[in-house]
Amino acid sequence: MNERAARASETGEPGVELRAPVGRIRCDPGWSFVSDPAKHDNYRIWLIWAGEGELVTSGGEHIALLPGVTCVMRPDGIYRAQHNPANPLGVTFLNYAYEAGDAPLPPVWCWTPDFLFIDAVTRKVVQLHAAELAGLAANGRRSAMLLRAVLDELQGAALQLQPGDVPSSRLDRDVIELANKVLEMPAEHDDVSELAGAVFRSRSHFTRTFRRIYGVSPASFVKSTKLLKARNLLQTTSMSIGEICSILGYSTTQYFSRQYKSYFATTPGEDRRRAQHNTQTNEEETI
Rank of each mutant, 00 (worst) to 15 (best):
Ser9Met: 13
Asp102Lys: 11
Asp36Glu: 13
Gly15Ser: 06
Ile118Leu: 12
Arg208Asp: 14
Leu171Cys: 09
Val22Lys: 09
Leu195Asp: 03
His189Val: 02
Trp49Gln: 06
Phe117Cys: 00
Ala6Val: 00
Tyr263Glu: 14
Thr253Asp: 11
Leu128Glu: 09
Leu18Ser: 07
Leu161Lys: 06
Asn2Tyr: 00
Arg142Met: 13
Ser246Asn: 08
Leu248Arg: 06
Asp114Pro: 01
Ser246His: 12
Val121Leu: 14
Gln162His: 09
Arg19Ser: 12
Ser202Pro: 07
Ala137Val: 08
Arg272Ser: 07
Leu136Glu: 13
His62Met: 02
Glu99Leu: 15
Thr253Met: 07
Glu52Trp: 01
Asn95Asp: 13
Asp76Gln: 08
Ser220Thr: 13
Asp28Arg: 14
Gly164Glu: 13
Leu248Glu: 05
Gln254Thr: 13
Gly135Phe: 04
Ala97Val: 13
Phe221Trp: 11
Val121Thr: 13
Arg123Trp: 03
Ile45His: 00
Leu161Cys: 11
Glu61Cys: 02
Glu283Tyr: 04
Ser217Met: 10
Pro37Leu: 01
Ala38Trp: 01
Ala8Phe: 07
Val72Ala: 02
Asp191Lys: 05
Leu183Ile: 13
Gln160Ile: 00
Gly30Ile: 03
Val216Pro: 02
Glu153Met: 04
Pro106Ile: 08
Asn180Lys: 06
Ile48Thr: 10
Thr207Lys: 07
Leu195Ala: 08
Val72His: 05
Thr70Gln: 12
Phe117Gly: 00
Glu270Gly: 00
Ile118Gln: 04
Ala103Gly: 09
Ser238His: 11
Leu146Asp: 06
Arg272Pro: 07
Ser202Met: 02
Cys245Asp: 05
Pro113Gly: 10
Arg19Met: 14
Glu132His: 06
Leu105Thr: 15
Gln259Val: 02
Pro113Ser: 11
Lys223Met: 09
Glu285Val: 10
Pro75Arg: 04
Ser202Leu: 07
Phe33Asn: 02
Thr286Met: 10
Thr122Ile: 14
Ser224Gly: 00
Glu177Arg: 08
Leu195Thr: 08
Gly51Pro: 07
Val199Thr: 13
Lys229Ile: 01
Ile247Trp: 03
Thr253Glu: 11
Gly215Glu: 10
Val16Ile: 15
Arg74Ile: 03
Cys110Lys: 06
Arg173Gly: 00
Pro88Trp: 10
Trp46Val: 01
Asn232Trp: 08
Gln82Asn: 15
Ala100Met: 06
Arg211Trp: 01
Glu153Arg: 09
Ala86Glu: 15
Glu13Gln: 12
Gly53Arg: 10
Pro163Lys: 01
Tyr214Val: 05
Ile244Glu: 03
Pro88Met: 06
Leu227Val: 04
Met185Arg: 15
Leu147Thr: 09
Trp46Cys: 01
Pro167Gly: 14
Ala265Asp: 14
Asp28Leu: 08
Asp119Glu: 14
Ala120Ser: 15
Glu285Leu: 13
Val34Phe: 03
